[in-house]
Nucleic acid binder design. Structure first.
Lengths: 191, 191
DNA sequence: GAGTCTATGTATAACGC
DNA sequence: TGCGTTATACATAGACT
């Protein structure tokens, strides 16, 4: 069956790697990518003989697992874990859910980034000193001795990096949007 | 820049999903696909908000893990489901193993991360000056004015951040697994 | 080993049923 | 919710550095 009007499909579209707001799409993507992840895990183990275990919890709380030779067999080797040091809150999505038009986002990117960096800065001040100490005697921040940071600081450091990375990524996309190929979204998404 | 002698590469070739015999090639594929698997896991978690844990043991006995929010956080949820009722017997991994000490492998993983960070530093020096300029007059690196970086530097900066974040993340996981006092390693290895 | 480059195999977003 | 289709974005084998 061929559609007489133009292309039969829009084909795969580029998406941002951040939380999908539309519930339906999020569910569909979860199913597809979970299957893809398991397949990749399977191939890795078949090709290289490695032992692999993958455990996934959907938002709804349903558990899925893949393992070669089995999830449990692999996890038993990882078992020496017992203690729990930091109450890591399950990285609930950042509050980025606004359905922003790309053009508008481009325009506001500057101020947005500054505001976020500023907000981030105050939150980071808590562990700022420790990181400064960690990089004492070194020239650049990325020379900071990661191992000098305790278990408590590492997650914070990691989160900070991720946020900054997100800012940079968004900005890079904005800059690349100098060319105007984007089909204007006729309406905003709902959920 | 085009090489005058026909094709520059054979491009990706189709392969059978079965054990790669050539040891060298197997190792390369392991590294590449392991990175790809972790990336997929990360994307799944970011896109759908799911919790994901991936644990991989290479043939050589090296342990690698990825988890959001962390491998252990996810596995703690999985354990009760898979029969955590019985405390894991003193035996570690007899039965599926790689013929090597898994505990020792875990310990080596941490040092491996150190080496990775070190290698990272040298590559970072290339764009170091530009970033230093960008953050001139500011106190901390995360105050760097992202906008001061040109379109050319942004992608590199973003990639660098992502890699460093990955290192930190891996190291955090390694710390958590290495944290509990080392249990005696009387495990027997099979096969 | 790890990173780079190119050509190509695959995974998958948007639709349809 | 799941499977099938299509056009594309993305991952990665092979060859080098």
């Amino acid at each position: 069956m061929v559609r007489p009007h133009g292309r039969q499909s829009m084909g795969r579209q580029r998406i941002q790697i951040r939380r999908i707001e539309t519930k339906d799409r999020r569910q569909v993507t979860f199913s597809k990518r979970r299957a893809g992840l398991f397949k990749k895990a399977s191939e890795l183990s078949m090709l290289t003989g490695a032992s692999v275990a993958v455990v996934v919890f959907s938002e709804a709380g349903h558990a899925f697992g893949f393992g070669d030779p089995s999830v449990d067999a692999v996890l038993r080797c990882y078992a020496p874990v017992s203690g729990d040091a930091a109450p890591v809150p399950p990285v609930s999505g950042a509050g980025f859910g606004e359905g922003d038009d790309e053009l508008e986002a481009l325009r506001r990117a500057a101020e947005e980034t500054k505001a976020q960096v500023a907000a981030e800065q105050s939150r980071m001040c808590e562990i700022a000193e420790k990181i400064v100490v960690a990089k004492a005697g070194r020239q650049f921040w990325w020379e900071a001795d990661v191992e000098a940071l305790g278990e408590a600081e590492l997650p914070e450091f990691a989160r900070a990096l991720e946020k900054l990375r997100a800012n940079v990524h968004r900005h890079a996309n904005a800059l690349l949007s100098a060319q105007p190929p984007p089909p204007p979204p006729p309406q905003q998404q709902q959920q």
